[in-house]
Amino acid sequence: MENNFIIQTEKLTKRFPMGKGEFTALKGIDLGLGTGEFTGLVGPSGSGKTTLLNIIGSLDTPSEGKVIVLDHSIGSLTAKEAARLRKEQLGFIFQSYNLLAVHTVYENVEFPLLLLGFPAGERRKMVMDALEWVGLTDKVKQKPPQLSGGECQRVAIARAMVKKPSIVIADEPTANLDAANSHNILQTMVRLNSELKTTFLFATHDEKVISYLKRKIYLLDGKVDKDEIVSN
């Protein structure tokens, strides 16, 4: 294979058991993403965006076809290997933030570093840096229930970014946010994308998100409908 893709899929098919039969959510997806992309999967509800993100994020496995993420073949990873890939290389941002409610902002952001076994001093610096990126250094001691939606999502971004992963996967990150917060967060991510060269992969049908994307992959009914690179 002659390329420098960090995410690549070939004839990726995903089927879910449904009643007696099966439902095919992804029908032969061929894609390649390079380092530093700011790309979104765009499409109507049910088109398979989340399914594709989950597989790329090693949270799920393909039924058929090949998925290579950072030289790992997702279909053949053990649960442990997949966890390690996520721990070391992937960051996740979700629609519903998914912060640990009883832990402070600081602890939420620190958590991935604890898993990676960074020493305390280094952890502290990295957490503060990440909170600096998202502009939340003054909310270190607060807990998620005391924060606004936009602030929660910024904590989630800091948590995804703190370990400087190669790829950040964001599934509808703005769905619960108002316009101002959505723009704020997208600008933060654009900045991190250019500063840290992190690859971002979104799933969205939010026009605001779409307007920031540098590449739009349109999914329709489990297939790639259109793959569009925005020239600037």
Partner: peptide, 15 residues
């Protein structure tokens, strides 16, 4: 499950 799901996504091992 919520909390556990997120911990797994962040890369904590199931075990």
């Amino acid at each position: 499950y919520g909390e556990i799901g997120i911990r797994l996504a962040i890369g904590e091992d199931k075990g």
